[in-house]
């Protein structure tokens, strides 16, 4: 069992490694994409300097919490798109009948699918997130927590995209909705939860899981709360199980396309 898991992990890492190597063929384009994504993200900090000039805090967040919020969101979103980018474009494979190539591989279908592509600009997102958290003056324990939450955030972002993408097994035209909801989730994740109240706050924790991916982790980093930490971990595991079950359930309905093509 452990050998099978090790082999699967090795295949995943090799897949991501080859994806990145393929993108690095043109080094100038690669470096420009990564570097400009860092600059692109950094530009939005100007918004917070302006807002925090008007008020001492926004939704209870000072500049340090805003930087933690942005750092965690960028690092989690970035890592999800480095390791599991295909989870975010799953409907394209399902609707186009392009899953066949993965079904005949002697490895786990779901893992093979979601690790089959990498977004180069996401490396810039990830680096920016880590850099921003580095500027927050975190101690060793906080750093370990921040890295753990980057992983849980990555898992939650990916699992949520996978869950939405898997709906395409039942309904066509879900591709646009998946993209919109995931981007909506990222938009919410970059604003403090303190500005949302009532139903919208409830939705952000239990329907679109921004609260579990980013808000609760920021609260734990600011003021440690073991119950909140366990809730985030439990939610990440639960969402992963539900989305994997939805994928395999949907896969039973998958009808291959007649598209002829080669995977290189």
């Amino acid at each position: 069992m452990s050998t099978a898991v090790k082999n699967q992990l090795r295949v995943c890492l090799l897949s991501v490694q080859y994806n990145i190597m393929r993108e690095m063929v043109n080094k100038v384009t690669f470096l420009t994409s990564v570097g400009f994504m860092v600059l692109n993200n950094a530009a939005i900090l100007a918004q917070w300097f302006i807002l925090l000039r008007l008020r001492e805090d926004v939704g209870g967040y000072t500049m340090r919490e805003i930087m933690l919020l942005w750092g965690l969101t960028a690092a989690s979103f970035g890592l999800a798109h480095i390791l599991f980018a295909r989870a975010f474009s799953l409907p394209e494979l399902i609707i186009g009948g392009k899953l066949d190539a993965y079904l005949v591989q002697p490895k786990n279908v779901l893992v093979s699918v979601i690790t089959s592509s990498t977004s180069v600009s996401a490396i810039g997102d990830f680096l920016y997130g880590i850099l921003l958290m580095g500027l927050c003056g975190l101690g060793l324990r906080e750093w370990l927590l921040a890295l753990l939450f980057t992983v849980t955030g990555t898992v939650i972002f990916t699992a949520f995209a996978l869950l939405l993408g898997s709906v395409s097994f039942w309904f066509l035209r879900m591709d646009m909705l998946e993209g919109q909801v995931v981007m909506g989730m990222v938009s919410f994740a970059t604003y403090p939860d303190g500005i949302f109240e009532g139903v919208s706050r409830y939705l952000l924790y239990f329907v679109v899981p921004v609260g579990m991916a980013v808000y609760d982790p920021v609260h734990v980093l600011v003021s440690f709360d073991a119950a909140m930490l366990l809730r985030v971990l439990g939610y990440a595991v639960l969402l992963t199980a539900v989305s994997a079950a939805a994928f395999y359930r949907g896969l039973r309905r998958y009808a291959s396309g007649s598209l002829m093509g080669a995977r290189v």
């Binding site: 909705l177 909801v181 909506g184 604003y191 500005i195 949302f196």
Partner: peptide, 24 residues
Amino acid sequence: ANIAMGFFNYFVFIFIFIKLWEYM
């Protein structure tokens, strides 16, 4: 109808900014 699918993101942006400025 496809164009109308983009309404969701527009609504999300506007909703966030309404909440943000209500706070400010």
